Simulated scan of single mutants.
Amino acid sequence: MLLYDKYCKTKIGYQCMQQTLKVQLRMGYIHVEISAPILLTSTNETPYGIYETIASGDSNPSTSGMGSGNYPPNENPSNAFDSNVTTKYLNFGTDEVEWGLNTGLYLTLQRGTSIAMGLRFSTANDFPNRDPLFVTLEGSNQSNASLNLGSSWTLIYSGSSGLATDPGRYSWGEIQWFSNSIPYASYRLLITQKRGSENSVQYSGFQLYGYPRLVPQLHLKIIQNTTTNGLESSVPVTCTTSITTSSVIVEYVTHILSKCNDNDILNPIMVGLGLMTQTEEFYNSDSIQSIFTAVLPLLAEYIIQNRNTEQHTDNSNLHYVYWLLCKMTGVMIAGPQQNSLEMEHTEKAC
């Protein structure tokens, strides 16, 4: 993804998002480049088996056992994420459609909200006809019991599993890439077709690839709030820009800009705010209005406090803040671009 803007004439650069996002201001442009997607799933995932479930439908929990709707006790959903191709996840499903079909799992990623753009399967030890051939993948930002509701899920992929050509037993198939620009906290996988006639579907591994949240999870996970009784409470932060989370993001950014001088934390904050200026293309302008309103005075104060320091000429953050302050102000004044004609006129004006 490449984004350009003509507001800045400095040359700076920094990296964030766990080495997958680069930002450079050069030759009068801001240049944002995202490199290759990374593995999103880990061996610490907690998946939940499901059966007799279709995309957009309610999830039907699968349980341990040896009959309809079950998975064998030693062949449970967690085996799909243990990085061991000698273990497997097997689900019998039901004979209402065909054994093993419409089974799968859902999970909330341990790394946090991420943009999935690829998936990959590995085959199990035996019975090639149990291999999944076609699948669906859905995303959700709901939580807890809401994840059982079909209305909580949005379909983002329906297609091949990457095992159309049998790679052999204990083997990984090809990564299947797909278009998706929306970050989700949870993902639901369903098997819609298998290789042949068998009493179940099985696979030894399942992986998701894509981009993690812009701000590293370590720096974004917790904000300390003081409750009415004077006790501190921890508030988890998500990367969505809904009205509910906007206030949390504002508090987080306010705390970082006011209290922190660590560039490793400031840099991804600046990148995230810069990307938020791409309203309507990546973010809804109504959602980020409250964020910009609160952050603009902080950016101005940051400039005032740092512009006369000895490190001014070497402060790459300060140069970027100059640009960011102008860009965010412009977004607030202009508002969202309403239609293609206005967008075309804006491009010509630039």
Score class of each variant (00 low, 15 high):
280 E>G: 04
243 I>R: 14
260 C>Q: 06
85 V>I: 14
265 I>Q: 02
185 A>D: 14
322 Y>T: 04
98 E>S: 13
203 Y>A: 04
66 M>D: 05
18 Q>A: 05
289 Q>W: 13
6 K>G: 06
25 L>P: 00
67 G>I: 06
286 D>C: 07
2 L>Y: 12
131 D>V: 04
296 L>I: 15
4 Y>H: 07
278 Q>R: 05
281 E>A: 10
297 P>L: 09
304 I>Y: 09
144 N>G: 05
119 L>H: 15
88 K>Q: 10
22 K>D: 10
20 T>H: 10
154 T>E: 08
122 S>K: 08
188 R>F: 09
257 L>I: 06
170 Y>F: 15
244 T>K: 12
162 G>Q: 03
222 I>N: 10
239 C>T: 15
312 H>T: 06
173 G>F: 00
96 E>Q: 11
293 T>N: 12
18 Q>M: 09
149 L>R: 13
19 Q>Y: 09
311 Q>H: 13
320 Y>F: 15
202 Q>W: 06
324 L>H: 06
246 S>P: 09
146 S>R: 06
148 N>G: 08
209 Y>C: 01
99 W>I: 01
341 L>P: 01
189 L>F: 15
96 E>H: 09
153 W>R: 13
324 L>I: 03
3 L>V: 12
323 W>V: 00
341 L>C: 06
329 T>E: 03
239 C>A: 14
40 L>Y: 11
155 L>Y: 06
78 S>T: 11
17 M>I: 02
149 L>W: 07
103 T>L: 00
216 P>V: 00
106 Y>W: 15
82 D>C: 11
152 S>G: 12
18 Q>H: 14
156 I>P: 02
238 T>F: 07
338 Q>W: 12
1 M>T: 12
49 G>D: 01
223 I>A: 01
318 L>D: 04
326 C>Y: 11
166 D>A: 08
142 Q>P: 03
349 A>R: 13
79 N>F: 08
342 E>M: 13
288 I>T: 13
247 S>A: 14
310 E>T: 10
